[in-house]
Design a protein around this nucleic acid. Structure first.
Length: 364
DNA sequence: GAGCCGTGGCC
DNA sequence: TGGCCAAGGCT
């Protein structure tokens, strides 16, 4: 079932040109030190939707703390989340931890090289599956990410909208036809490296491109029109009111978020979404603390406003200083702790901002 | 399929 | 400055 789109495409020479270029020009990255499947796995999870430069320090720290699959499997959840703090998409950390424990128990600690087994692991989707299999085990599976779709859409002049999920299958079909069976690792990595260094989203460096002679978009001068990618929806504004609450003995009230959803299991200052049409933020906050935690809160003063934009949501947080007088009922997710203890917990970016401002102000 | 899920850097 | 972008996966 040869694809029509590959008519007149010199597959053999394309493979050769791509792999030769990758052999000489690839970056020296920490996760390319060897082909240890565990190290490859961790790097692929961290690199999801995340830049190489952002990953580097986290990867080094993570490998120091959890050098082996066994070490990660034996770690505490909160320790793993703390190592992920600031990297974003925190379900990646939870899923990786879950999957590693499963590999330890089900597969004797060896990352499976079987397609059916590896794709069942939490957090391992079509891309990561192909990346691990090809890079760690030399198995010719497609690893189609954003880079690969951009590069191949230009080279083969494919005008499908890459923002649509089903478009990935189009590219997987293409890769199955053209991937090198001799060196699938360098073929897949070569496509991604090309996308990162040469065939970049804006103003691609076509004159430096090792596979320029194969590129249909370059031949027709339309490389800047590809790939086609429809725009994402604008983030929705979500106003919140939060309290930095001190106890009589100088501790602070902190809350652990729910175990699923946004910033799952991360710690923050207690806060509540401001209801539609409600004007008295302070009142709503004290009511919330009373109803949900049976805590009597008195607000001292307005502290600051913090904005934070996620992919699909924008927080607008009104922060107040206050004090609590009651005692906390036995609730896992609410604690009174010192500044030093809070520092040790996984905290999201926006609440770390609040935290650091408050330390400046309250602990001179 | 569409919506949800973070953060930092670039121009 | 703000929109866009980055080695996706889950529900």
């Amino acid at each position: 079932m040869k694809l029509e789109i590959l008519d007149d495409f010199n597959i053999e020479k394309f493979r050769h040109d791509l792999i030769s270029w990758f052999e000489t020009e690839q970056r020296d990255l920490p996760w390319r030190m060897n082909k240890d499947p565990y190290r490859v796995w961790v790097s692929e999870i961290m690199l999801q939707q995340t830049r190489v430069e952002a990953v580097k320090p986290y990867y080094a720290n993570f490998m120091e703390k959890f050098p082996t699959l066994e070490a990660l499997a034996n770690a505490e959840d909160e320790e793993v989340l703390k190592a992920w703090e600031g990297l974003g998409y925190y379900s990646r950390a939870r899923n990786l931890h879950t999957a590693v424990k499963e590999v330890k128990e089900q597969y004797g600690g060896k990352v499976p090289s079987d397609v059916k087994q590896i794709e069942k692991l939490k957090g391992v989707g079509p891309y990561t599956k192909g990346a691990i299999l090809s890079i760690a085990y030399g198995i010719p599976e497609p690893a189609v990410d954003g880079n690969v779709m951009r590069v191949l859409s230009r080279i083969l002049s494919i005008w499908d909208d890459i923002a649509k999920p089903k478009t990935r299958k189009v590219f997987e079909d293409v890769v199955r036809q053209i991937i090198s069976k001799e060196n699938p690792s360098y073929f897949n990595q070569g496509l991604m490296e090309l996308g990162a260094l040469i065939c970049i989203p804006k103003n691609p460096s076509c004159l430096l491109c090792p596979v320029r002679e194969h590129c249909r978009a370059f031949a027709e001068g339309v490389q800047k029109e590809l790939p086609v990618k429809s725009k994402a929806k604008a983030p929705k504004m979500v106003p919140l009111v939060a309290g930095v609450l001190r106890t009589e003995d100088g501790k602070y009230v902190v809350n652990k978020r729910e175990s699923t959803g946004l910033l799952a299991n991360m710690w923050e200052f207690p806060n509540v979404e401001i209801g539609e049409g409600i004007r008295n933020h302070k009142q709503q906050f004290t009511d919330y603390m009373k109803e949900k935690f049976s805590l009597s809160v008195s607000i001292d003063e307005y502290a600051m406003n913090v904005q934070h934009t996620f992919t699909h949501r924008m927080w607008d947080i009104f922060v107040f200083y206050g004090t609590v007088t009651g005692t906390i009922a036995e609730a896992d997710r609410l604690k009174m702790i010192t500044i030093q203890e809070f520092e040790q917990l996984p905290i999201s970016k926006s609440h770390r901002t609040i935290f650091e401002e408050c330390v400046k102000k309250l602990q001179p």
